[in-house]
């Protein structure tokens, strides 16, 4: 998904740069509420895991591949503000050290992957967890859906940017179908990894999955009611 230099014009790149800077500034404030002694080490670990995961492209048939974006995963583990920072750090390191994603496109990539990816995943989980029963067993499947949705959401956002500042004329309907279609397939891989990692952490340290906090309170209440009854 990393956008190289040259796909979008300078005005659009400057605009996404401003959006990215604004998002990071907000996240620097918001993350303070999410980070404490318990969660800060996990945030560091999440960044490292997302970087590693992004190195491993998995084939999705027909000559294309995808890799973890990690936004939904990070949001569910450490909260959306911290996740915005974590994924931004990964993207900055990739752009500066490895030439992965363009330099003028850095703001675009932060906007797509660290803002749209993170928050689409986070809100997908939140909305579904409100309408569905609060059963802890539902957290991994919801994590799968959050991961799945986050990838075509970012792809759709790219199409929006391309419609405004794309550097070569294309049929927009073709572009949106291809981008959302392929990234939905890639999103299945994203969802699987997101669900696997969330359920692994849930198994050993349920308190370190921020998105599962309402579920833990519900479980503890049930246990207490059962004990006093």
């Amino acid at each position: 998904m990393h956008v190289p230099d040259g796909f979008l014009d300078l005005a659009t790149s400057a605009a996404t740069g401003a959006v990215a800077a604004g998002g990071i500034a907000l996240a620097l404030r918001g993350a303070r509420r999410e980070l404490d002694d318990r969660t800060a080490p996990l945030a560091g670990l999440t960044a490292v895991f997302v970087f590693a995961g992004q190195m491993v492209n998995f084939p999705v048939g027909a000559g294309t591949s995808g890799h973890l974006m990690g936004g939904a995963l990070a949001a569910l583990l450490v909260g959306p503000w911290t996740a915005t920072l974590v994924v931004s750090v990964v993207l900055i390191v990739q752009a500066l050290l490895f030439g992965d994603g363009g330099l003028t496109a850095l703001g675009t990539n932060i906007t797509l992957i660290a803002l749209v990816g993170v928050w689409a995943g986070w809100w997908t989980f939140r909305v579904l967890s409100r309408v569905l029963p609060r059963r802890i067993g539902l957290v991994p499947p919801l994590a799968f859906v959050a991961g799945l949705v986050s990838v075509p959401a970012a792809a759709l956002a790219f199409v929006g940017l391309y419609a405004v500042g794309g550097q070569a004329p294309v049929e927009l309907s073709t572009l949106v179908t291809a981008m959302v279609g392929w990234h939905t397939v890639i999103g299945v891989g994203e969802g699987v990894i997101t669900a696997l990692v969330v359920s692994s952490v849930l198994a050993v340290r349920p308190d370190l999955v921020l998105a599962a906090a309402p579920y833990r309170q519900a479980t503890e209440l049930e246990i207490r009611e059962g004990a006093t009854a």
């Binding site: 998904m1 990393h2 956008v3 190195m55 491993v56 492209n57 998995f58 084939p59 999705v60 000559g63 294309t64 591949s65 995808g66 890799h67 792809a155 790219f158 572009l175 291809a178 981008m179 392929w182 990234h183 890639i186």
Partner: peptide, 12 residues
């Protein structure tokens, strides 16, 4: 062992 195929965006 990562796939060397173009990623989704490159492919599209």
């Amino acid at each position: 062992y990562a796939s060397a195929q173009p990623d989704g965006l490159e492919y599209v």
